[in-house]
Amino acid sequence: MMGQDKLNVALVTGAAGGIGAATARELHAAGFRLVLWDVAGNFPAELAGDTDRVLTQTVDVADTAQVDLALSAVREKWGGVSVLINNAGISPKTPDGKGRGILAVSADEWRKVLDINLTSLLTLIQKTAPDMMAQEWGRIVNLSSQAARTRSTVPGVAYVCTKTAVLGLTRYAADELGPYGITCNAVTPGRIASPMTASAGADVTERLNGNTPLRRMGTAQEVARAIAFFCAPSGDFVSGAVLDVNGGLFMQ
């Protein structure tokens, strides 16, 4: 018999806005204590004000020293992390809103995207899994992208490659950590209204909306509900899964 969640602490990265903030609200409503990370701060006021159940920390997920320091404070306050939502990510664009392709991407951009979109996920899994293993219960949800599931050049090569690799990391973690009662799943959002997608330009949005069966962009809250499903009892026997949230734009 596997354990239960005695810690009841959910860590959400990239939690200042968009999908991260919406996920924080969903998990807060579900009763979790929250640790909210973002490199820029500016967390939702209604969550940041609940100091009994919410700890906000300004953290660069690609900086291991910052990660270690922040997690030390979490363990001192609440004992550890039982739910990890790896949401932080970047998608660099050119001034005209396009992602850089193979011949244009620089080594610096490639490394930065890799560090934030992929390596930080591995680092956080490594550093929080022991908390979950100790109680034989844990939930990990990694944010990938529809760009990892189908042909796409809009976000740029670094983004596409890292988000594709996230799916492999998810499956590997699900396999290795499953015997300890830890599930690991991925959510692949399609076109979601956010500052990141707006940077690609109105013409891209119009074209993709026209190809989407639901004929619209998704909302951060709709993705957050999918993430919350994996953390709820309804998702207890789901692991290694990829959940597409895209209005039907990509169908496998």
Rank of each mutant, 00 (worst) to 15 (best):
N8F: 05
V9Q: 09
A10T: 12
G14T: 07
A15T: 14
A15D: 05
G17F: 06
G18Y: 01
G20Q: 10
A22S: 13
E26A: 10
A30C: 08
R33E: 00
A40G: 13
G41F: 11
P44W: 00
T51Q: 15
D52R: 14
D52V: 15
D63A: 13
V67P: 00
L69F: 01
A70I: 07
E76D: 09
K77Q: 14
W78E: 05
V83I: 12
L84D: 08
A88G: 01
S91L: 03
G101E: 04
L103A: 12
V105S: 12
S106G: 15
A107D: 14
V113I: 09
L114R: 13
L114I: 11
D115V: 07
I116E: 05
N117M: 11
S120G: 10
L121N: 07
L121V: 14
L122K: 08
T128M: 10
P130V: 10
A134F: 11
Q135P: 05
N142A: 01
N142F: 00
N142D: 08
L143W: 12
L143F: 14
S145N: 13
S145P: 08
R149P: 01
T150L: 04
R151E: 08
S152C: 10
V157I: 15
V160D: 04
A174P: 10
D175S: 09
E176G: 05
L177D: 07
G178F: 07
G178K: 06
P179Y: 01
I182K: 09
V187A: 12
A193N: 14
S194Y: 08
A200C: 10
A200K: 12
G201W: 10
E206I: 09
E206N: 12
E206H: 05
L208Q: 07
L208M: 02
G210D: 05
N211M: 10
L214A: 00
G218T: 07
T219G: 06
T219I: 00
A220Y: 03
E222A: 02
E222M: 02
V223A: 04
R225E: 07
I227W: 09
I227G: 01
A232M: 11
V238W: 10
V238M: 01
S239N: 06
L243C: 06
V245E: 04
G247H: 02
G248H: 01
G248V: 09
G248K: 06
G248Y: 09
Q252I: 15
